[in-house]
Design a protein around this nucleic acid. Sequence first.
DNA 1: TTATTTGTAATTTTTGTTATTACATCTATT
DNA 2: AATAGATGTAATAACAAAAATTACAAATAA
Lengths: 152, 152
Amino acid sequence: MKISTRFSDAIHLLAFIHIYKGQIPLSSETIAGSIETSPVMVRKLMGELRRAGLIETTHGTPDPKLAKATDDISLLDVYLAIEKEKPLFQIDYKTNPDCIVGGNIQETLKEYYNQAEVAAKAKLNSIKLSDVIDTILVKQKEKDAFKREIEQ
Amino acid sequence: MKISTRFSDAIHLLAFIHIYKGQIPLSSETIAGSIETSPVMVRKLMGELRRAGLIETTHGTPDPKLAKATDDISLLDVYLAIEKEKPLFQIDYKTNPDCIVGGNIQETLKEYYNQAEVAAKAKLNSIKLSDVIDTILVKQKEKDAFKREIEQ
DNA sequence: TTATTTGTAATTTTTGTTATTACATCTATT
DNA sequence: AATAGATGTAATAACAAAAATTACAAATAA
């Protein structure tokens, strides 16, 4: 199949809206240009973020807004908006039920996988969109400073 | 993102070897019957587990052995043997480098994603193959007891 | 030396992801 | 109110990674 970057793209989208709001028109076309994906994909992601209460959009108007402060949106909020109930670690449910291992491995791993998944989610919940945006802006400043340096 | 069922199947394989060792011949055919996959897949997984030092096999002989005690093999050991460097959360590397967001999102998310990944891995490292096997055996005993009950 | 099995490579099949096409619906402007 | 430009969504095609299959050399054990 193909590896999904939807979570990564959704964070990109939110940061983009916050950083470029008021600067350029925020159409799905414009946003898609930054993510380098299709406008349809952007609109689909925005639909999921809207239903999760993270952004507000108006039908027909290219002007999405964040529905909350950037320090009130965690990466877990975004993850859940996009990935929903999808487990982080995939369990093989097609095993031989008549075997001691095949018949009990699912229930067993479900417990242990969940512990690891919760640990990751707790960490995602501690990271806010504001952290991501701050880091992006710092990295950009560093790039600009280095660029000026080698130009002299 | 997301992990295939190979991780799940590898744990299955190790538990199967431990539980059925000496009881039945442990050919890739037999093991594949419990996982409900192909013998070739089993041999591939066994190859990776062998190279990671978790099992010992002999070419031509259907008799794999665990290379360590079951409480000395953690789920993280198995995960790393199978998934190697593969990140738990996928970053979209194809974004517009001329955009502030598109040009810095990868480096930014790499840091934060890694924090979440480490949290999950630390938890996986605390769970041992012995825990998995104990849980499987307890669940089987419970099944057997319940089955006897409704038969009377 | 023969049957069985492992170890691997190469190829095909399967399946989830992304891209594309199409269009109804809404907004804003004239 | 008519038009241009946008969103929201469904349906379909194209694509890419995983799993299954096929094939066979090399090793073991009888």
